[in-house]
Design a protein around this nucleic acid. Structure first.
Lengths: 193, 193
DNA sequence: GTCTATAGCCGGATAGAC
DNA sequence: GTCTATCCGGCTATAGAC
């Protein structure tokens, strides 16, 4: 896969525009205008709009992996690693209240479009899911680890959807406290990690 | 507001198409084709696409109110009324796994489009929210009633998002059991209603 | 690698006959 | 109330000059 500064800039700007305005509603002209190139030049880098989407998803996958690694480096205790995930909804609350979760809303849109890349979008969710399951396993959750991972992933998605619909910061904070309490109350898991 | 069989049919079909394919991705031609009328005739009933969206949201509001009334008639015990809400995600699991929640996905899309009707879409959520809060008040939740309503609404939204991303029926069932258990474990609430 | 110009299509919206 | 015909604009995508 070729790489160039212009290409990278296109992907970066497209990523933001797809998040803020949706994939379908974002046109080549929109991206070209923000990047500062002509529409014609665009096609030197990407032949179709789907190719850009693919590159955007790949970018998000790479960045997600990097974030997960950062969280692992920041704290070796699984409980705090999981809380790093949970606190994302507070760290990004302004964007979430405006545009929802970038992963959840992309999956929802691509599902309705029945787009070929809808599975790849869900793969971003899987990165979080598998990583969270790993942390729950480290906490001694055993076979329940994946269920717990899915549960906390879904919880955060619900927070994002309602935060966007109601623009309610207090709700976000309450739910984050709720998740933290839930985490500490899990039976048979160590409360000291 | 005028009413006619054709107009009603347009709204009904548009409602389904907006849900299954998204608002923006659904064209006048798509709706006209399914309704069985010409595009020109369309404009006799609706002057703009936004007018159709408005009518669709109104239809959903009306139908939601009717559903809430049905749940009240079916059982006078608040706990079972709340469970009627919760079991929607199982009753509609096929559609939810394919297209997500009709309310949540519409709110997400309109938020990104910064559409004038995004607030009206969120009003559908408010119908559920206020009704649920009423049930929690009847359970003796007092000031916490609205928080609990938002919590369970968000929970169901998270289930819908992940059910659609992962197409996982077992996950839906587990979460419904989880909500039921949570409901029964709420402190200071009667467990017999 | 970047540009201009343009093709070709489909979107929403309108006019006017029947 | 329903139709056909049509306009206009924006969209994706292409061709070809520089």
């Amino acid at each position: 896969m070729p790489t160039s500064p212009t290409r990278d800039l296109i992907i970066e700007k497209a990523d933001a525009l797809f998040y803020e305005g949706g994939f379908e509603a974002t046109s080549f002209a929109d991206i070209a205008a923000i990047v500062g190139i002509s529409r014609g030049n665009f096609y030197h880098h990407f032949k179709t709009k789907d190719e850009i989407l693919d590159a955007v998803i790949s970018r998000r996958m790479t960045r997600t992996r990097a974030t997960l690694e950062d969280w692992e480096i920041e704290d070796e205790r699984p409980r705090y690693r999981i809380l790093s995930f949970v606190h994302m909804v507070i760290a990004n609350q302004t964007e979430i209240m405006a545009f929802g979760c970038p992963v959840g809303t992309l999956c929802s849109e691509l599902a309705k479009l029945d787009h070929v890349s809808k599975g790849r979008a869900a793969d971003i969710f899987s990165l979080f899911r598998d990583w969270l399951a790993g942390q729950f396993r480290a906490l001694g959750a055993g076979d329940r680890a994946d269920d717990l991972a899915l549960h906390i992933l879904g919880w955060s998605q619900g927070v994002a959807v309602l935060a966007s619909a109601f623009h309610d910061e207090a709700f976000i904070r309450r739910e984050v406290i709720g998740i933290t309490t839930w985490l500490d109350s899990l039976p048979n898991l160590s409360h000291h990690n």
